[in-house]
Design a protein around this nucleic acid. Structure first.
Ligand SMILES: [Zn+2]
Ligand SMILES: [Zn+2]
Length: 677
DNA sequence: AGCACGCCGACT
DNA sequence: GTCGGCGTGCTC
């Protein structure tokens, strides 16, 4: 009997065997879209493999082959299997993620177009462009790697405005010659209409656009065109990493540290950078990663003799421009005002020059950390090294245990450790301790009183649906010069540039360093370097003034010295000691339930089972309530599992999935997560 | 995830 | 006496 192994679009680990009726045998192959009975209903799934043999159980026959040819390529089927293993995700969901919804379950057959005549990109770059020495050296090296037509990966570590984009453009154009295909990954936030228009014009041949907002028809056209090889260049956000290619030769990942490349909401929880590197290996293509602040994931691979080649671009294109300056203002945290006299003076000076200022303030809510105002010690979990969060008795039963004077306690959101609030500093034994950071409201009030007459806009950026419109209004008003100072929670906004901003003030770097997340320092460094790159103009150096009570912190020191390599070395050492990515593999098992009791019980049961069955119980952390302990009526608790490598992690995750959960509780498994809240 | 089957409460 | 609540279990 001919048997087809079929992945159905359900969140189940396994695939299902079906009998292939002789009439369908000719059109059922790996990658074929097929319809078959599934319990009481019928579903459209994808064939993983076909074999002849004796069934070990009674099989139902497939009802139909949907298309004349397999919709998915062999490479895509292999990719689906890789996704399922790498991210501990159900195979059906992995296959599903590779097909746009309009093609996934279409009842009409999908005909694959044949590639027509292929337009060639213009050989010569547009005139009037002289590359800098740094651009030229990077381009030459990368072009040689591209010409070799073998798998290779390179990381361009280039200061902001070093002209990485021009290097990408020339490489992409080269890759698209002779039938080749190229993928340009761009962070969601940078993928604007003007950007796409300029990029398409620069390429000199049709470019497909791919992101979540692209309509069904355009997606279908792009997907089929790439599959056939007639579409040669595609620019897209995260999900473009999952597109089909006929002859992939180059992938460029711009701003490779950008967290929008990680799918953190739905299975498969993939990282686009990992996906394109895997695909480039099979296709024999070149991957170029670019960043001013490389992720530790990439940077740790870009060592001499390592799998990624490091290229540096330290020189800015506009050579006359003075480099941005980062000034560290040490504060003790005792001050009543949140804006130091030095910062205020700098703001005043910029306003007199009719320039603009952005003051960055962290979002509040999860930023209630505990810091000593005497010695700047921060209360951190001894096992996780993550800042404790100062909680107003979250769970009633916890409150009973640790009813301090005011019913507060310290909670580690990684492992769930719960401690009474200390009376004195854990380092100097004195104090006083302070319990919260600064909010935008307070900064605005202070500006009003100390700089009367300055036009101030405030942006809290909770980015809820209702606030999207007002948010755009604020960014627009600031760009149009309707205010001098923007007090906000983020530095970049989709489609906005602020050439008149010459000063970025980071009001409270300590809050960012003390976010309850093992990546807090990495994010702080990236934000500060990006801020420095964004402030300033062609004729004027940008200035970043950051206020911190921890001027000696390794992250702050590295930024002040402009020593990213030093920072990365230090951080990587810590990640190794504490077994966090990229030095180890990490899974976040997020439990979602309608009642807190059941949700927590699920976490407890799984954590207990994992610890009992493991020779390394310290590798299991939690359960702990999420930083967002409840979202849209769902309670959230999580368990973290660490492992030396992905294979060991997969074993632990499999064991976790075998634990029966209380009814009404779901679990989401996120491997190497970025979202820890 | 769906979808059916199951066994207890309050309706015509 | 049935209609329907959603707990539990299975899907080749
Ligand atoms: Zn102290
Ligand atoms: Zn902890």
């Amino acid at each position: 009997m001919r048997i087809a192994e079929v992945a159905m679009p359900v969140p189940l680990e396994k695939a299902f065997d079906y009998e292939v009726p002789p009439a369908l045998a000719a059109s059922v192959a790996p990658g074929s879209r097929v319809r078959g009975p599934f319990g009481p209903r019928t579903l459209v799934g994808f064939v993983l493999s076909v074999r002849d043999g004796e069934p070990t159980r009674e099989l139902k026959p497939l009802a139909k082959a949907m298309d004349p040819e397999p919709l998915l390529t062999a490479e895509q089927m292999a990719l689906a299997r890789w996704l399922a293993v790498r991210y501990c995700a159900p195979i059906g969901e992995c296959v599903r993620s590779l097909v746009p919804p309009s093609l996934r379950s279409a009842m009409r057959p999908v005909f694959l177009p044949k590639a027509g005549p292929l337009p060639e990109p213009p050989e010569a770059p547009p005139a009037g462009f002289e590359l800098t020495a740094g651009q030229s050296a990077s381009f030459k090296r990368l072009d040689a790697l591209l010409e070799a037509r073998r798998y290779a990966a390179a990381l361009i570590h280039g200061v902001p405005a070093s002209g990485k984009t021009e290097v990408y453009l020339r490489l992409l154009r080269r890759a698209a010659r002779g039938g080749g295909q190229a993928l340009f990954l761009v962070p969601e936030i940078a993928l604007t209409k003007p950007f796409f228009a300029e990029f398409s014009a620069g390429m000199g041949l049709p470019v497909a656009l791919w992101h979540s907002g692209v309509g069904a028809k355009a997606k279908r056209e792009a997907w089929l065109g790439l599959r056939a090889g007639s579409v040669r260049v595609v620019v897209g956000a995260r999900s473009a990493a999952l597109l089909p290619f006929k002859d992939l030769r180059l992938v460029v990942v711009d701003e490779e540290q950008d967290e929008s490349y990680k799918e953190d909401d739905n299975a498969p929880y993939y990282h686009a950078r990992d996906v394109v590197m895997e695909r480039a290996k099979t296709a024999g293509a070149l991957v170029v990663l670019g960043s001013a602040t490389p992720s530790l994931e990439s940077y740790s691979l870009a060592v001499p003799g390592g799998p990624v080649e490091l290229l540096r671009m330290d020189e800015r294109v506009a050579k006359g421009t003075p480099p941005p300056v980062v000034r560290v203002l040490a504060r003790r945290g005792l001050e009543r005002d949140c804006l130091s006299p030095e910062l205020l003076a700098a703001v005043k000076e910029r306003l007199q020059l009719r320039e603009q200022v952005i003051l960055l303030v962290n979002r509040r809510g999860y930023s209630n950390f505990v810091m000593c105002q005497g010695c700047s010690w921060v209360a951190r979990c001894p096992t996780c090294a993550v800042a404790f969060v100062h909680h107003k008795g979250a769970a009633a039963d916890l409150q009973d245990l640790f009813a301090g004077p005011a019913g507060y306690s310290l909670l580690c959101h990684h492992c769930g450790k719960d401690e009474p609030v200390p009376a004195v500093c854990g380092r100097c034994g004195k104090g006083p301790l302070k319990f919260s950071g600064v909010g935008t409201q307070k900064v605005v009030e202070e500006l009003r009183s100390k700089l009367p007459g300055a036009r101030v806009l405030r942006m809290d950026g909770d980015s809820t649906a209702g606030e999207k419109a007002t948010e755009a209004g604020v960014w627009g008003a600031f760009r149009d010069g309707k205010a001098d100072i923007l007090v906000g929670t983020k530095l970049v906004a989709k489609g906005y540039h602020f050439p008149r901003v010459t000063l970025v003030g980071v009001v409270d770097a300590d809050t960012m360093l003390s976010m309850p997340d093992f990546r807090a320092a990495e994010r702080t460094v990236q934000m500060l370097v990006q801020a420095a790159g964004r402030a300033g103009r062609a004729d004027k150096a940008g200035l970043v003034i950051l206020q911190t009570a921890q001027p000696a912190h390794y992250a702050i020191q590295s930024v002040a010295r402009g020593d990213y390599a030093g920072y990365a070395r230090e951080e990587l050492g810590l990640r190794r000691d504490l077994r966090y990515p990229p030095a180890a593999s990490l899974a976040r098992l997020l439990f979602l339930g309608k009642t807190e009791k059941a949700t927590r019980a699920a976490g407890e049961a799984v954590a207990e089972a994992l610890r009992a069955g493991s020779s390394d119980p310290d590798a299991v952390l939690g359960p702990a309530p999420g930083v967002h302990s409840k979202f849209e009526d769902w309670w959230r608790w999580h368990v973290l599992v660490k492992a030396a490598d992905p294979a060991k992690l997969a074993e632990a995750v499999a064991a976790a999935k075998a634990v029966p959960l209380p009814s009404g509780v779901r679990v989401k498994v996120n491997v190497d997560p970025y979202d820890m809240f």
